[in-house]
Design a binder for these strands. Structure first.
Lengths: 246, 246
DNA sequence: GACTTTTAAATGTCTGACAAATGAAAATTG
DNA sequence: CAATTTTCATTTGTCAGACATTTAAAAGTC
């Protein structure tokens, strides 16, 4: 554990890689304590600040946690689903915004994956998830709601639908696909008519889930996808026309 | 940009959060240069090592890159799909291994999501993806292949299937679901008969994709899921019997 | 025995310094 | 003047040493 050749990368990056590899391979297990910073500095033959930079890299990925005090130190962290969710959402959001991913592409991905868990959701939906979906539908139909709040509620509705599948791995994988759409949807202005149409489709979806009617849920999701993509096309076209017509 | 209240978190974490927020919100755009470490230390009223720890945290998430020299510094990084892939895979793999996710749960998630992109893949599949699938099938049918290599080839086959959908967002979202299964699959020993059955199903899937027959692809994937889950159950049951019988 | 104090170990932070890389400006040369 | 070389300032990478803070266990006290 002291390999620092003449690579062209940072020492702190090399050390972080070495420790990360040890965690992934299982040589370091959950809740195991790493050597102290001073000991690591000795082992890798670098200074303590360099070790600290490496540890901060790992902390940023929630791979370790640190604790001060006599029995403190750096411990291998059990990566929780919650931690993974937020990382997933951050990465997905940035990926979409930085690579100019089209609304259409992101939308297609989102609905393709959501439709995949609709059958499971229909089969296993709990009263809890149904209540959340109904509550969000109610919020969406209230007048005076800002577009942003409408989008946020839309995301919450779809999250409940996904979580209804009762499979935490699916919930995790779809967290990014569902939440990263929000910034893109925020670019759309929803007319009262649009909102009514979406609320109606959401209601139909919730009804289908409640009735455990998977094919109906799939059909309504497909229709919602079609409507959303058409809406985005219209809004973008109108915006383009306004710009060129100035 | 100088808010460091009496929180109970690290200063470096607070600074990293502030800069990350600026990137996500768009106040810092791609390729923009951050102030030098000395300037950041001044602005946040902390020392340079503390700023450096914050920057390393961001670098670990590929949010920034650093460059030495006269015109160097830290730059907002365009998060590439490739970077996002590997982060996604690392996180998914750790999430599954650290939380004792059952084979069944992970398998259900993987196939539910894969089946979601089968129709798109059938519609858009390129000769490239088909060739990859055929090549992996061929590899899988060669005798003398280790179980590990067989699993790796299996992952490559499924990756090609997913990539065939031609939607980079889908490919990104599913990278974790597909690749994180590999360590779990590596715990299974495949008999010659098992391998033959899997190869046969893979061939049927590739045929369906080539024929652009989405329903057939879906059916074969469902069958492959059923077979894989049954296989895992059998292997685990046999292992449990052997342990209790000792 | 219960409570308080001390102490040691560990991380968090700071100061100051030097090394190395790198591009641009300045000096040199044909 | 143009091309090349040299110098140089800027910035990150690394190090050494120090002090502050937190924490739990050990020692001491009633």
């Amino acid at each position: 554990m002291k390999i620092d050749p003449e690579k062209r990368t940072d020492l702190s990056a090399q050390i972080a890689d070495a420790i990360r590899e040890a965690i992934i391979s299982g040589r370091l297990i959950v809740d195991e304590r790493l050597p102290s910073e001073a000991e690591l500095a000795d082992q890798f033959d670098v200074s303590r600040p360099t070790v600290r930079e490496a540890l901060k890299r790992l902390a940023a990925q929630s791979l370790i946690r640190t604790q001060r005090g006599a029995t403190g130190g750096a411990f291998v962290n059990r990566l929780s689903f919650e931690d993974a969710y937020s990382q997933q959402i951050t990465t997905s959001t940035l990926l979409l915004s930085m690579n100019a991913v089209s609304f259409d592409t992101a939308c297609e991905a989102r609905y393709a994956l959501e439709r995949a868990c609709a059958p499971l959701s229909a089969q296993r939906r709990s009263p809890d998830h149904l209540a959340t979906m109904r509550a969000e539908i109610h919020r969406q139909s209230q007048p005076g709601l800002t577009d942003e709040a409408f989008c946020a509620s839309d995301v919450a509705f779809h999250r409940a639908l996904v979580d209804g599948a009762g499979n935490p791995v699916i919930s995790y994988q779809l967290a990014g696909a569902v939440e990263a759409m929000q910034p893109l949807m925020n670019m759309i202005t929803f007319t009262a008519r649009d909102r009514a149409a979406i609320v109606s489709l959401h209601t139909a979806i919730a009804d289908a889930i409640e009735a455990q009617d998977a094919p109906a849920a799939d059909a309504q999701l497909a229709e919602l996808e079609r409507y959303t993509r058409q809406l985005a096309r219209d809004v973008l076209a109108a915006r383009a026309a306004r710009v060129s017509g100035t």
